[in-house]
């Protein structure tokens, strides 16, 4: 009996470890492939069969990427735009989410639907209208245009996710606060907002990545102003030394460089995401 349990215990352990390894390979292998593609010279990149470990390592792709001013400028622009968009979406969105999740008033369903419906159109079909709007607001060719328009897809998402988190919080806390004489607004920012911190971090992270990855708006609204372009646009403009040549190795080097800050970001916020455990425990 005991041996039996031992067996199943170890089988479970091994199975679980195998699962972790599998997930690790599944998510990380393509990134590894990008990395080694960036390190290979073109002759090795196109040979059959492909090598799983580069035989010749060259840094020329990375050098080319770091010599590219437009790319570096793009990194800076992307960072600024994404941070502003996330902060704006979280500030504005958490207000709305508190109202929708905690306060009592009519028509909530419709408000949520209206907010959601903003994201139902494909980006491309609202683009011409948005282009006109951006021009009229005098924002064409500036990163302000991106900070504003990116809210179209980050804000509704933020509102919806945060609303559900606000709803999930226990009512007792709020009651206690009200009994203590707090106004609803004070209850919001003194008690409920700190409790949703892990949700804010998670939502913020997802919004950040969505903004970081955006391509079509950035391409359209900053076309003639290379100084305002984001990194995704900068990468797609990589040209080889010969016209028509697609420098695959350089594009891969750039994609590695673009991804690393996000991985660092996730590692930094690791503890925050973990804090969700304690926040959940408060609920009881």
């Amino acid at each position: 009996m005991a041996g039996n349990r031992n067996f199943s215990y170890w089988a479970g352990r091994i199975g679980f470890s195998a699962l972790i390894v599998l997930i690790f390979l599944y998510t990380a292998f393509p990134f590894y492939w990008a990395l080694i593609s960036a390190l290979k010279p073109e002759s090795e990149l196109i040979q059959t069969p492909a090598t799983f470990f580069p035989q010749t390592i060259t840094l020329q792709n990375f050098e080319a990427v770091f010599r590219n001013d437009a790319f570096l400028r793009g990194l800076l622009n992307s960072t600024v735009v994404s941070i502003v968009v996330v902060i704006a979406a979280l500030c504005i969105g958490s207000f709305a989410a508190y109202a929708l999740g905690r306060l009592k008033f009519g028509g909530k369903r419709w408000i949520l639907y209206v907010i959601l419906s903003m994201t139902l159109f494909p980006q491309i079909s609202i683009l011409p209208g948005l282009f006109t709007l951006v021009n009229q607001l005098g924002m064409y060719g500036s990163i302000t245009s991106l900070m504003t328009t990116y809210l179209i897809f980050t804000l509704p998402f933020t509102v919806w996710v945060l609303t559900s988190f606000f709803r999930a919080l226990p009512a007792e806390l709020e009651q206690a606060a009200l009994v203590d004489g707090c106004t609803p607004f004070q209850t919001f920012y003194k008690i409920l907002l700190p409790l949703t911190a892990p949700a804010l971090v998670t939502t913020g992270l997802l919004a950040f990545i969505a903004a970081w990855n955006e391509y079509l708006f950035s391409l359209t609204f900053t076309l003639t102003q290379p100084a305002a372009q984001t990194v995704t646009v900068a990468i797609t403009k990589f040209t080889g030394v010969i016209a028509r040549n697609e420098p695959f190795g350089e594009i891969m080097a750039a994609s590695v460089v673009v991804t690393v800050p996000l991985i660092v970001l996730v590692l930094v916020f690791q503890r925050r995401i973990v804090q969700g455990l304690t926040a959940g425990a408060v609920k009881g």
Partner: peptide, 14 residues
């Protein structure tokens, strides 16, 4: 921070 970022962005493009 938000306001600062907007101001900076103006500096960036302008």
């Amino acid at each position: 921070l938000l306001i600062a970022a907007f101001v900076f962005s103006g500096v960036f493009n302008g």
